[in-house]
């Protein structure tokens, strides 16, 4: 049960039940789709980019608690950041959920609640789906992203 509590931390459960920035963004100038057909996770990410900086960001879709909470917290963390800063955060997040980090979780802020994911290798794809989707949105890719 302790591993489970590490995975399903209260913050994650809370975000999955009441996701933030869960809406369409009419002014979005970047948009991408993330879809893991095997588990059925399916999200659309909307980004309003002001030059190099994320002015606003939102998402819609459905998926497991991990993927949905990850999407919700991504929108909170990435808003106001530059593309380079978002990419840096993604790299660190990837290290965290794969258990490859240097243990310094401070720079990840509240994303550190996803540290339990590394104990569940099959769930890494859930946590990272929307991050890969963000990269696709910023790069203007048209094809849906998958982490399966």
């Amino acid at each position: 049960m302790s591993d489970l509590r590490e995975l399903y931390q209260d913050v994650i459960l809370e975000h999955s039940k009441a996701p933030r920035n869960y809406r369409e963004l009419p002014l979005a100038n970047h948009k991408a789709e993330g879809y893991n057909p095997l588990c059925g996770d399916h999200f659309t990410l909307y980004v309003d980019l002001d030059g190099d900086r994320v002015r606003d960001i939102s998402f819609q879709g459905s998926g497991c608690a991990i993927s949905k909470a990850s999407a919700s917290m991504l929108t909170q963390m990435v808003k106001g950041k530059t593309k380079a800063e978002a990419q840096e955060l993604f790299d660190k997040f990837l290290q965290l959920v794969k258990g490859e980090g240097n243990g310094n979780q401070a720079e990840l802020g509240k994303l550190a609640v996803f540290s339990g994911v590394c104990e569940f290798p099959v769930r890494v794809k859930c946590a990272t789906l929307v991050w890969h989707t963000l990269r696709a949105a910023l790069e203007g890719k048209q094809q849906a992203v998958s982490t399966e």
């Binding site: 489970l4 995975l7 399903y8 588990c39 059925g40 996770d41 459905s62 998926g63 497991c64 608690a65 991990i66 949905k68 569940f120 099959v122 769930r123 859930c126």
Partner: peptide
């Protein structure tokens, strides 16, 4: 609750 979360638990 998504089936994947059910399966993991």
């Amino acid at each position: 609750i998504h089936p994947h979360d059910v399966g993991t638990i």
